[in-house]
Amino acid sequence: MPRYALKLEYDGAPFAGWQRQADQPSVQGAVEAALAKLERDVPSIAAAGRTDAGVHALGQVAHCELTREWDPFRLSEALNYHLKPHPVAVVACARVADDFHARFSALERQYLFRLVTRRAPVVHDAGKVWQVQNPLALEPMQRAARYLLGRHDFTTFRASICQADSPVKTLDELRIEEMDYPSGREFRFHVRARSFLHNQVRSFVGTLERVGAGAWTPEDVKAALEARARAACGPVCPPQGLYLARVGYPEDPFG
């Protein structure tokens, strides 16, 4: 059966997450329903990351198997037609080798988290950023982030319901940048690793926000990491500022 990779962009707000749910809308369910309009009995699709409820994607990757050959452009156009009115789009499509797997072939995943500081409510980015009203200092957050880089036991930053076999992960990048935002400031957290624990990125950002606000020191983050205890973590921030931005493979399937 021909196999295709799909690069997906979506607004996670209306969904209970990526994974198919019996009684709630999911991104996987929306894509599989669109595929069923093209071919009957399409096998279940797999994705690079199972994003949680409210989490968005700029570059989620999934793969599917179809019974006949499709021109990738025509397949993406047909899927986008049948995905309406869901806020999901196929932004790229490619024919891939039979052993390509969206999840298991991936070498790394990159997340973006958007945090906005301003007093007035966010209007145009409502549901797309985490807004806090207190100002934040960039440099202490950057210093704290450096303690998290590398290979560590991240039990402190792991959700209690996480099903990963081990809390030990290697964090390759945690970069924070500050930029102008109308009547405020925006902080963007760029986080990259081969794989992540459940709620790891949101735990990082919620904890680093406390550093930026002056409630924690950078050394408090180091101590929290070394505690290897969930109770040592700072607040877990809400999901709406989180985006699965990119998935890396040995060769880019989309050219």
Rank of each mutant, 00 (worst) to 15 (best):
residue 177 E to I: 08
residue 177 E to S: 14
residue 177 E to G: 08
residue 177 E to N: 09
residue 177 E to Y: 04
residue 178 E to M: 14
residue 178 E to W: 05
residue 178 E to S: 15
residue 179 M to Y: 00
residue 179 M to R: 13
residue 179 M to L: 10
residue 179 M to C: 10
residue 179 M to S: 14
residue 180 D to M: 02
residue 180 D to L: 07
residue 180 D to E: 14
residue 180 D to Q: 03
residue 180 D to Y: 05
residue 181 Y to K: 03
residue 181 Y to R: 04
residue 181 Y to M: 02
residue 181 Y to S: 02
residue 181 Y to P: 01
residue 181 Y to N: 01
residue 181 Y to I: 00
residue 181 Y to V: 05
residue 182 P to F: 07
residue 182 P to G: 06
residue 182 P to E: 03
residue 182 P to Q: 01
residue 182 P to R: 06
residue 182 P to V: 04
residue 182 P to K: 07
residue 183 S to L: 09
residue 183 S to V: 05
residue 183 S to D: 15
residue 183 S to G: 08
residue 183 S to H: 05
residue 183 S to W: 05
residue 184 G to Y: 02
residue 184 G to L: 02
residue 184 G to E: 04
residue 184 G to Q: 06
residue 184 G to I: 03
residue 185 R to E: 03
residue 185 R to C: 11
residue 185 R to S: 10
residue 186 E to L: 12
residue 186 E to H: 03
residue 186 E to C: 07
residue 187 F to D: 05
residue 187 F to G: 07
residue 187 F to C: 11
residue 187 F to V: 11
residue 187 F to K: 03
residue 188 R to G: 00
residue 188 R to V: 15
residue 188 R to L: 15
residue 188 R to H: 10
residue 189 F to Y: 10
residue 189 F to T: 06
residue 189 F to D: 01
residue 189 F to Q: 08
residue 189 F to W: 06
residue 189 F to R: 08
residue 190 H to F: 13
residue 190 H to L: 14
residue 190 H to T: 13
residue 190 H to P: 03
residue 190 H to I: 07
residue 190 H to R: 13
residue 190 H to C: 12
residue 191 V to T: 14
residue 191 V to A: 11
residue 191 V to W: 11
residue 191 V to M: 11
residue 191 V to S: 12
residue 192 R to F: 05
residue 192 R to E: 05
residue 192 R to Y: 05
residue 192 R to L: 07
residue 193 A to D: 10
residue 193 A to R: 04
residue 193 A to Y: 00
residue 193 A to N: 12
residue 193 A to K: 03
residue 193 A to C: 06
residue 194 R to Q: 15
residue 194 R to G: 15
residue 194 R to M: 13
residue 194 R to V: 13
residue 195 S to R: 04
residue 195 S to Q: 04
residue 195 S to Y: 04
residue 195 S to L: 03
residue 195 S to C: 09
residue 195 S to G: 09
residue 196 F to I: 02
residue 196 F to D: 02
residue 196 F to R: 06
residue 196 F to H: 00
residue 196 F to G: 05
residue 197 L to A: 10
residue 197 L to M: 08
residue 197 L to V: 07
residue 197 L to N: 05
residue 197 L to F: 06
residue 197 L to Q: 03
residue 197 L to S: 00
residue 197 L to Y: 06
residue 197 L to P: 00
residue 197 L to T: 06
residue 198 H to S: 12
residue 198 H to M: 13
residue 198 H to Q: 14
residue 198 H to I: 09
residue 198 H to R: 14
residue 198 H to V: 06
residue 199 N to M: 14
residue 199 N to F: 13
residue 199 N to H: 15
residue 199 N to R: 13
residue 199 N to P: 04
residue 199 N to Y: 12
residue 200 Q to G: 08
residue 200 Q to W: 00
residue 200 Q to Y: 03
residue 200 Q to R: 06
residue 200 Q to L: 13
residue 200 Q to F: 00
residue 201 V to M: 04
residue 201 V to R: 02
residue 201 V to W: 03
residue 201 V to A: 09
residue 202 R to E: 11
residue 202 R to Y: 12
residue 202 R to F: 14
residue 203 S to P: 04
residue 203 S to F: 09
residue 203 S to L: 10
residue 203 S to M: 12
residue 203 S to E: 11
residue 203 S to V: 09
residue 203 S to C: 15
residue 204 F to S: 14
residue 204 F to C: 10
residue 205 V to M: 08
residue 205 V to G: 08
residue 206 G to R: 08
residue 206 G to M: 07
residue 206 G to Y: 00
